[in-house]
Nucleic acid binder design. Structure first.
Length: 136
DNA sequence: GCCAACGTTGGC
DNA sequence: GCCAACGTTGGC
């Protein structure tokens, strides 16, 4: 069964447009155990909301896991993982953090509850609500 | 094993 | 630029 996730990136570091340009990227650099464990739970075909932190603060597009977790060779030491992501589509409009925070249906999102976690699960209901907002 | 000190992330 | 939240490190 397909699972849903949210991954954060500062657009100055790696933006949605970068992903579109490259068509695929290895999501390296995660150095937090909870985030790493979430990467390891991802399956090929899972959908990942692409969130711009810092400048932007909004969900901007949907990506897809195209390769399951494998060792992150950019890590000098420790046991870290990465997955490969490819763009699926840009949202018709970005859904901002303030919209998410003010939406009663999205109050339990990890993004709201634990804002610092860079790779986090999203429920099917939350995903649907975000897509509904993007279409409004 | 506890906790103070420190570093980082990310929103404001 | 500030600071809250959270993670990590290291002394005890």
């Amino acid at each position: 069964m397909k699972s849903y996730w949210l991954a954060k990136s500062e657009p100055e570091t790696y933006s949605w447009d970068d992903l579109v340009r490259e068509k695929k990227t290895s999501w390296t650099g995660v150095r937090n155990f909870v985030a790493r464990n979430n990467l390891r739970k991802m399956s090929e075909g899972d959908e990942v909301l692409f969130y711009h932190s810092g400048e932007g603060k909004a969900v901007i597009g949907i990506a897809e896991v195209v390769r399951q977790a494998y060792p992150d060779t950019t890590a000098k030491d420790g046991d870290w993982s990465t997955v490969d992501l490819a763009p699926v589509r840009k949202l018709s409009r970005a859904v901002t953090l303030s919209e998410i925070k003010s939406n009663p249906r999205l109050q339990d999102m990890v993004l709201v509850r634990q804002s610092r976690l860079s790779v986090q699960p999203v429920t099917a209901i939350e995903l649907r609500e975000i897509l509904r907002l993007a279409a409004s």
